[in-house]
Design a binder for these strands. Structure first.
Lengths: 206, 206, 206, 206
DNA sequence: AATGAATGAGGATTCATTCAT
DNA sequence: TATGAATGAATCCTCATTCAT
């Protein structure tokens, strides 16, 4: 029951942080949205920042571990690994758009140092894992000599760009204003296809 | 003299908004940073939001107009236009990192509707201009059949991803923690090269 | 206990609003006078205007209901009803001078539309109830043909005029400057007598 | 030209003070309404309070002098004097409703001592002049023994009550909501008739 | 004589947090 | 464990006023 309430608060908080930003979302808002007492946030998470950190720590670990797993896998070729990572990011981001918008906002801001650093470190780990895959491919001569970290920036950046605004996204996709493209399987496939083709022609270019 | 003070406030505000976000940057902060009286912000811009909008309107117009100019130019080939746009974004974003971080933050947030909408509209214009270039190239058969709006998302998204964090960027680039990669000509060239190669091999893929 | 604090704030606020006017009384003042934290006013009443409205709604209802009761009473003659209303106003106003000064001020000002309207509506109800008594008396030929609403204006206006200033009132009454005439039983009787004689000779004039 | 501008500011200020109260009307408002520079109010009148005092001093003298003149007149009977004073007040108040609303507000407020005292003194003078007329009438046995200062309070109070709200006034008078009763000659006559009849039957009651 | 720019004090309100229960 | 009341600090903004020109 306790865990339920904690989790419930965290889930509602993600949506609110995504929508209004960390500063823009007040603890009162959070409590109202989660239908709990105002004091609950401080009671469970100490501070508003504590709530944010809890969310980040709980969720970011998943993606990081999956990437590590892919990188370490010995039965997959390099291009297969890259493809898996692309799928991982597109699927992960589109299925949790609120969380990833929240993360993006926090990465843009240097105010809250503690939180910022934690994000950065996780991100650097992911980058390094990705780089090592690419560089191995280059050494094996299955990949062209590319700028590995910038390739990673392209993948993440493209998905993040899509996440920025449903409205812009719908303009791309030709849907109407109030449609939710993130829940559309067709759109997900389209995005994966785009990134894969882009990265393939870049990596496998002769 | 009047213009000077206004401009001065706007310039300092860009840095602060970039650093702390719109809500995170207080009017007190803004005034202190710009070394003016607290009441000056309201005196010149009415409200804090008014200041933000003034900044956005003044600066976003430039990029939008340049893209429109490139799109309308009749002496350039399609691939030349794409290249110019890539250069425009990399140079524009790296030379005004604060402003573009600020814009990114605001695009992620749906709280302040008026501001959000203005940003979105300008962004849609840019997307449409880019799309028309790509589609013309496709009709002329100089470009492969690609997903034009997603190509645009890739370009913008990659540069934005770089802007997210100097620290991450330095990890990519192999520089030390406190270096400013945005002011480094080498890094700029490297970024332009990456994006051009990526997009070229995608668009011109046989 | 909660009710106590709320009520306490309202009571002190009445005095302060009466003394300085709605705009003239700052929330800081109110909090200091009531010996509570500045945030308490907003905590209990939402806004300063909310506090005012709460006061008005709580107190005005009493007088309005009493007048309605008098008007509806079937055992009283018309002149008895008029006399009761005169006593009601004199006693009500002299026993809560602060509140009625506050109401007078607000009726003079058209700035805060919502509050103004509420006051006006209650006042119109009272006027109508009074009118119906007078008109019945006229139909029954116990009253001269008089201008009923203006008679009501005279009654209220006379008491309000007395309330305007203790000092002026003391000049009338022959008391010294710092005396409180509103608490003086003699003065109350004198005022009731004056109004009754005035209205009687007007209504019962042959 | 200077006098014109001063007068112009004062006229607009009366309307604004009447509408919003002294505190409710900002110097910015005043300047905008009068279509002059913000600094002009302070330039001409020193302070906002100075402007108010100038208005009061300029206008209140007129009524006071007229009453003094009536009181001193040796060719008029007492009842004629009373009638003239009634007419004077009704006409004066209805022709300058803004100014008299402003005065009423200020009399209700004890905040600004200097201004308050000046008003009170003038008012006491008027009361004394009126009293002396009534008392002479009583001595001459043309008037019943009445409570002279309260009779004066009734006259002033009735007219002030009418001034409180156009809306209420229109409810009395049977006009529609947006009509201006103060400019209606019929209504003025009706008000004068009411007060005269009221006071006559009171003073001349046998 | 007249003004636009500038200011510091103070306005109402909201904030995240704490505490007694 | 859970909460409603309470708080002091901070929020944005407006105020009347001043001053250099």
């Amino acid at each position: 029951m306790v865990t339920d309430k904690r989790t419930h608060i965290m889930e509602r908080a993600i949506e609110l942080f995504a929508e209004k930003g960390f500063e823009g979302a007040s603890v009162r808002d959070l409590a109202t949205q989660a239908d709990v007492n105002i004091a609950m946030v401080n009671y469970y998470f100490g501070t508003k920042e504590g709530l944010f950190q809890q969310i980040v720590e709980t969720r970011m670990a998943t993606t990081r571990d999956k990437i590590e797993e892919i990188a370490a896998n010995k039965t997959l070729s390099e291009i297969e690994k890259v493809d898996l990572i692309i799928e991982l990011y597109v699927e992960g981001f589109l299925s949790q758009p609120g969380f990833h918008k929240m993360i993006q906002q926090e990465m843009l801001v240097t105010k809250r140092e503690g939180m910022h650093e934690k994000l950065i470190n996780t991100f650097i780990q992911n980058t390094n894992n990705f780089n090592s895959i690419i560089e191995k491919g280059i050494r094996k001569k299955v990949f062209t000599k590319v700028d590995a970290p910038l390739v990673f920036a392209t993948i993440i950046g493209t998905v993040n760009q899509i996440l920025k605004s449903k409205i812009v996204c719908n303009v791309f996709a030709g849907y109407n204003k109030n449609y939710d493209p993130y829940k559309d399987e067709q759109f997900k496939k389209r995005l994966i296809t785009h990134i894969k083709q882009l990265i393939h022609s870049h990596l496998l270019n002769k």
